[in-house]
Amino acid sequence: MERIQLSHGGGGEESGKLIRELFYRYFSNDILLAAEDAALLHTGGKIAFTTDSFTVSPIFFRGGDIGKIAIAGTVNDLSMMGAKPLYLSSSFIIEEGFEFEKLEKIVASMAEELGKCGAKIVCGDTKVVPKGTADGIYINTSGIGEIVREGISAATIEEDDAIIVSGDVGRHGAAILMEREGLGISGDLRSDCAVLWGVVESLLAADIPIHAMRDATRGGLAAVLNEWAVQSGVCLEVEEQRIPLSTEVQGICELFGFEPYDFANEGTFIIALPAEYADRALEAMRSHEAGQKAAVIGKATHYKDGKVILRSAYGSSRYLDLPKGELLPRIC
């Protein structure tokens, strides 16, 4: 079996071969193939720029792998700012002895996700570290997107804004937990890992005035709502029974005592927008797979600024706080 060796990161012949035969093959585009020290990019107006490192364990999980998440993560961060993802960098830190076949699978998965949003990998780097000094493979991607819609911000939510979630929450965190802990529960639970540009593009094209938009990654729905409440100085009141939840995630939470709103997502996002546009937004979202279960879950008020309130269907309510303590290390 072919394995990655230290020489693959050494900058010499083996490195060149790896770049040509793997990365160029899957990521091929003119800018990358120019093979200069830095990529030369053309952008018109205002751009968004973001970076993220991916260390997920296990590397392959139900519904995705580290490659898919490395593209989706960065593409989604750009999309959430109303930016069309254009150019990405991709840096690999690979442990000596990592199977080439797995690396190819990861790279192929990255190429597939790029194809879904039209973004390109235009530069990259590969380092190989001695056996035992990394856990298989880590990937960093940075990305540049062209702003299509300005002014989307966590600080611009207004009273009476509707809060929409794009799908059922908590699947990525729950799926990783199942895989990593080998909990021996079978079922259809899969990570929601997905590139969100398509659904965001539809929302922007429909001219819906989005105030805030964020993907509910680490910290889940609870973290996004709390950050928004503080940054916009509003109270977010959410009706618990309206939050979409799969029976699998619900079941895991029942068994292990987790809160589904704390679990990470990798293809689910939250929007705040004027309530009168909520129906149009739902319509635009539901035409995409990633938005099929989109639902209005609550609204912004000034009842208790800076707080998130969860209301039950039988008249009680409580604060939904930020997740605390060790929930799940290394989920992305």
Binding site: R318, Y319, D321
Partner: peptide, 27 residues
């Protein structure tokens, strides 16, 4: 004393009264 840096054990466990009060504070 918070769940992140608990002084006492009742703040640690999700079954502890302090933790439950903190986590599900009444509005």
């Amino acid at each position: 004393c918070t769940p992140t840096s608990p002084l006492g054990s009742c703040m640690v466990s999700s079954e502890g009264a302090c933790n439950a009060y903190y986590r599900y504070m009444e509005v």
